[in-house]
Design a protein around this nucleic acid. Sequence first.
RNA 1: GGGCGCAUAGCUCAGUUGGUUAGAGCGCUACAUUCACAUUGUAGAAGUCGUAGGUUCGAGUCCUAUUGCGCCCACCA
Length: 921
Amino acid sequence: MAQELSKQYNPQDTESKWYKVWEQNNLFSAKPSPDKLPYCIVIPPPNVTGILHMGHALNNTIQDILIRYKKMRGFAALWMPGVDHAGIATQNVVEKALAKEGLKRQDLGREKFLEKVWEWKQLYGSTIINQLKKLGCACDWERARFTMDQEYSLAVTEVFVRLYEKKLIYQGHYIINWCPRCQTALSDEEAARAELQGSLYYLKYPFKILGDSPQKTGTVPKYTDEFIIVATTRPETMFGDTAVAVNPKDKRYKKYIGKTLILPLIKREIKIIADSSVDMEFGTGAVKVTPAHDPNDYVLGKKHNLEFIKIMHPDGSMNEIAEKYSGLDRFKAREAVLEDLKQLGLLEKIIAHTFSAGHCYRCQTIVEPYLSQQWFIKMKPLAKPAIKAVKKGEIKFYPDRWTKVYLNWMDNIQDWCISRQIWWGHRMPVYYCKNCQEKNPKAGIIVSRIKPSKCPKCASESLTQEEDVLDTWFSSWLWPFATFYWPKENADLKYFYPTATLVTAPEIIFFWVARMIMAGFEFKQQIPFKNVYIHGTVRDSQGKKMSKSLGNALDPLEVIAEYGTDALRFSLISITSQGQDVYLSKDRFEQGRNFANKIWNASRFILINLKPEDVNVDLCVFFKREQLDIVNRWILSRFYTTLEKVGKELDNFKFNEAASSLYAFFWHEFCDWYLELIKPQIGEKQTQIVMYKVLEKYLRLIHPFMPFISEEIWQRLPGAKDSTPSTHPGLKPGVCSGLMVSKVEPSIMQQNWPHLQSELINKQDELQMELAFEVINVIRNMRAELEVNPASRIDIQISAMSKLTQKSLEQLLSYIKNLAKVNALTLTEKYIAQNNQYAVVFKDLHIVMPLEGVADAAQQINKTNLKIDKLKSEIKNKEAMLANKNFTLRAPEEIVEAEKNKLIDMREQVKKLEAIKNGLR
RNA sequence: GGGCGCAUAGCUCAGUUGGUUAGAGCGCUACAUUCACAUUGUAGAAGUCGUAGGUUCGAGUCCUAUUGCGCCCACCA
């Protein structure tokens, strides 16, 4: 027996119930299967400290739709979940917690601190996992991976050793992005530039008096009144200056090249050098060179053999080189330096200047370009095959325009700084032999998979491991294969790799997508995935990126609590056109909620009227198309048209279009028309079967989008749930899926995607029904115009000029009568004009409403007259008002404009009413 | 400096390779309430598709120029 549904859908009860059922029945697990094709999604590992935001909700909804869809299409669909260890972020969180107890990580020491981090991970690390479950994500949780897992770490070590042995990893002194707060190096991608309103300071560097040599004599150096002015945004870096550079072509400075300047405040002697890279237009055309604190100056320093002088401690405070400024934070030092220069008359001017500086992606501190010993990967050789694969189309980006962005970055790829001076992360498999290093500082480096007990060269046992850990992305870039326990070659890896699709946000292309492709080729000699779907950024209705720090974030969990998961998912997906940014405000979710309610109530109506004994048959066996009446033929044709369309849209990653196709079909065709049309014939067997089948199949179509409500209703449907053979594109050739009649499955999740019965799509049927809809609309309009009581039935004559239309209409009469509330509907060949009737011409039809017996024509005319009179007097008032200069001159323009428009509207209305009145006579 | 995206109804946006009358959601107006659903139904008002040229029988769609907004990359002393 059909179970009755409650009047209102309650998402909260439904959702937690079904997720548990799915989990308990192991429906998320995907195993290699000999007769199925694999479809694997690699989840962008959310960071372990993360909490679900709208971006995640969108990203994971898309992935879940893909997985559920592919599963129904017969693929062995695997969604491999997990989290990454988010080195800096996690360390920050734990350090913050420690700070509350008044502790620093240094107080605990490395071992103890890491214990604390693991503790924290055990307690809070699964927050995001639980939130993904609330979203309904069909992840194979048994496979959940963590980048710091033992097996995963083995892959990280393996990769490091291999790259080192190929000489693609090297150690060197370079200028890197240094975060003084986190006290670690950052990759270029982790130090995104942001515009700053700052100042450009013009400093005077005086010339040295010839012959004076204070460094030798120990006396105070003397300088002349002459000087060169340099412009800088970071005056505090002057202590590291070892030259001033000018363009050799610059006439202003040509004569000074090679002369010596005295660096104010600390009185160092510096030379003026010439370099063509200096922009003559910018500032004064003379630039101070600080090789240890600026990447460009670093290049200059190397080229001109300058001294590299570091002037800061790792925490961003000045060191002893800065003499009396030593110990001051860099920004405090800037103020002090400026003040002192001003006193000395060496500050020429300050002008406002916008510039951009790197900001730490975790704490937003302005990063300092800092010279230090770091580890790097040579990227150019890795990039080669990764560029080729995308150019050849082995990997496709959706939308395509990201291909260009990717290629552009790859063509200009820079070496990747992979060392981080933090504790939480994979420690590098690098060991130093003290003994060897004493003899030669460049020797004594041992890179090994297992910690060596003694130095292979000198057999010394005094070995220390590198303190630095690896960039988190150094583990994430291995995700597509390391999650399958690579470097072991197991069956899962063989079956699921390369994976099918990666769904991610644009900001992650460089961080992660590009690097995964490179890792795929380097370590698996293969692409890691075939498709990369890049979705838009979620923004608020102002267009700002949603983020916690801006306080404009809509919490998906709140939305779920208020509207339900299905509503959240459906709304999100229907406003995400391919690759466009998503603008969100809360009322968006009402649409999704209303739609869920509509599905619920339509299903409720069907279940109330369903005779289960009738529906337990196979549609395609029981009925041929010709045996069905026009309404049932029509809805089947529309259903299969929709099925075909949605399939194509999903295959092309057009999720919003699929959602809107599903929405329009269900609401505006199935509910608005079909269910209304069949009400008088709902007991008929053919109608019973068709309405049931369409609903049952529709639930399967909507399931990837709205998994919970579709499951809840589907479970309450009686009878055979699936009886048509599936197309099963995911099955390997030669495998027959067979008929699956009445097979009891615990879940809609395991059902096939409905088989496309294209023989049931018939454009003729669709056109015929459309004619009925149009006629019904015309009659409804006529009623509205004449203000016929909505409850009363009227008589209508329709004359069709063509025989064909007439024949079409004959089958439709009862439906038209029903939905247009017509009493007697007569069909005639020719239209003969008569008195006392209201006629409308539509296409080749005359639709005529005789007025006697329907409404008192005279009364209608009176009513219309009254309306016209009222309008006319209002028009007079308006005209007088607009003629009044007091009004037109004093009132705001937009109000005058609005009044004018109102006047125009009213005149048009009068015209219309007069036309109707004439029709009535 | 280089690249990309967007501009369509009051608002937020769809519109696949050029093709009948340019769509949706929200909002607005009028009417409807023993009916599966007011989280509803019926109907209505509302658009010179940013601007200017061009290609074409035909342009929201293709080309050129231009304006405004947003994003990315590089540079930034």
